[in-house]
């Protein structure tokens, strides 16, 4: 079985978010980058499938050369080889198109990724990739088992769970608890730099979307604590200071 795992290169969850260039660019200064946490679960499930019943895992990332340490981390965790599409991942359609092209060429049985990246959180890439390849796309997948040429999935839906059976190949946007989060072992880390990492140039895509600017949420105002039994004061402040009553 051939599995393609798509990984995003995102700021660590504790990063401080700032924008530069007139609020059009994310300030990467001092930011540590990681594999997108949802993608990490997708990768972990791929590694489990490989350990249980054999598979080859290719990871793909759309990004410039600075994403290579993140890609090598995925190789350390257990992927066999990697593809980097040498381009800034400008928007979901652009990224999905690049992935779909590589997926078509590679002929994968399964395409896994996180339900969304944790930077711009569009959560759209898996759907577009499925559409472009003409195969099903399912998200958010919390359980995934392969049985021959089909897969059994569990998906989170509003107020409950949905159980599905789907023919390979398909695209899955994954989330916890699809697999146990994996820490790379020393052997994996040492072999990461010797595994193939192919760099391909992107194809031209005009997604018609152009970023104008970012805006940070307004800073939190100060908080006033009022004793629980002092309702009078609460009403007074809401009326006269916050002027919401």
């Amino acid at each position: 079985m051939k599995i393609l795992v798509c990984i995003s290169h995102v700021p660590d969850t504790t990063s401080k978010i700032n924008f530069i260039d007139n609020n059009t660019k994310f300030d990467t200064n001092g930011v540590q980058f990681i594999i997108g946490p949802y993608d990490d679960y997708a990768l972990a499930r791929a590694v489990e499938l490989k350990e249980n019943s054999g598979a080859t895992i290719t990871v793909i990332n759309v990004g410039l050369v600075d994403t290579e340490p993140t890609i090598r981390k995925a190789l350390a965790i257990g992927a066999d080889d990697a593809i980097r599409v040498n381009a800034e991942p400008t928007d979901s359609f652009f990224v999905a198109t690049q992935i779909a092209e590589q997926a078509k060429a590679g002929g994968y049985d399964l395409i896994l990724m996180g339900r969304e990246s944790i930077d711009y959180n569009s959560g759209a890439v898996h759907g577009i990739v499925g559409e472009l390849l003409g195969i099903p796309s399912i998200s958010p997948v919390m359980k995934l088992d392969i049985e021959g040429s089909t897969a059994k999935l569990a998906r989170e839906i509003e107020g409950g769970k949905e159980y599905l059976e789907v023919n390979l190949p398909f695209v899955a946007g994954c989330q916890e608890p699809i697999a146990e989060w994996k820490i790379p072992n020393m052997r994996g880390i040492m072999s990461a730099r010797t595994k193939p990492l192919k760099v391909v140039e992107p194809s031209t895509v005009d997604s018609g979307v152009k970023l104008q600017k970012f805006e940070l949420p307004p800073a939190k105002g100060s908080v006033k604590m009022i004793a629980a039994d002092n309702v009078q004061e609460l009403v007074n402040l809401l009326k006269n200071e916050a002027k919401v009553l």
């Binding site: 340490p69 090598r72 981390k73 350390a76 820490i183 790379p184 072992n185 020393m186 880390i189 990461a192």
Partner: peptide, 17 residues
């Protein structure tokens, strides 16, 4: 180097997990 930093992260993750 990158490999050493990955090992550092590995150890941090191990403690965390």
């Amino acid at each position: 180097n990158e490999e050493q930093l990955m090992i550092k992260q590995q150890c941090e993750d191990f403690l965390k997990k």
